[in-house]
Amino acid sequence: MSTLKLDLENYKELLQEYIRSKDEQALYQAEQFSKQSMQQKISPDEIINIHIQSLQEIYPEMPEYIQSSLNFLLETMISYGLAYQEHQSLREKQLELKSEISVAANMQKTLLSTVKPEIEEVEVGALSVPAKQMNGDYHHFVYDEKGTLGIAVADVIGKGVPAALCMSMIKYSMDSFPEMRMDPSVILGSLNRVVERNVDSSMFITMFYGLYDSRDHTFTYSSAGHEPGFYYHKDQGEFEEIDVPGLVLGVSAETTYTQYVKEVEKGDMIVLLTDGVTECRQGERFIEQEEVLDVIKSYADLPAQEIVDQVYKHFERLQGFQLRDDFTLIILRRNV
């Protein structure tokens, strides 16, 4: 039997063959039959129907109670068959949605894209990896001719599409700010009001905003409940936490943000991140903050972009590594 036909005759022959010989070959054919039925969207109850008809033809004297029990089985399988059909059509819909989301993800990439500035005085490395298709992390660079580099790193609560939509709102509010040099505390204050007015009550955004002045090498920053960054002292080979108080954006319209200034020494680095970095897991185990810092330190001699790339690769290589949240890591280093 080279070609398998999905018909009563064929099934009957297989069944007969199996009952006679208990041959494995017939079972194999039955498996093929079942696979082809699936491909042709034949529901399970239809196969049972074919089985009943075949039996009737093979055993015309079949006892009444067996006949009834098979009819009973057929009825039972009808709703199963319906569920199966529904499952099939949901699978098709799921594929459609998947492709729509990937279009949206691409659009988001374009909308939120930022150009990493190439500046002689300060070297920048940046990496952002979404846990799912769409990224709820956001980072943005603004560089002006006077030599100030603005860096925003933000994380919107939640993941996926709602988070991504929310991020686009933040990006466009920031674009609408006047183009003069803005203090981090002012920027966060304005964004807080935007988020508070526009976002659902359980949504919030954490953001770190820093301004690097490449003329005097000062770093001015404020934080709205964002994961603390780190300052790396090259001479001592040690990290210092940039721990800044400040409430997350969107909780209270009256919130104000304090601004801090730090002088950056030659060769020192500023490390900014999101909680996707500190909440990485290996199996059930959390990857501790010290571990992240040790890894950064071990690559500290590389160019900034290579450091962030290598750090991510390091964790990705760990067995059982899972990215639970979007991962963003930015490194600034004073070069001259």
Binding site: D155, I157, G158, S201, V248, V251, E279, R324
Partner: peptide
């Protein structure tokens, strides 16, 4: 607890 959990308590606080 992750940030989604935090969101629940922020809504609860607002409420």
């Amino acid at each position: 607890m992750d940030s989604t959990g935090l969101g629940v308590f922020i809504s609860a606080l607002k409420s």
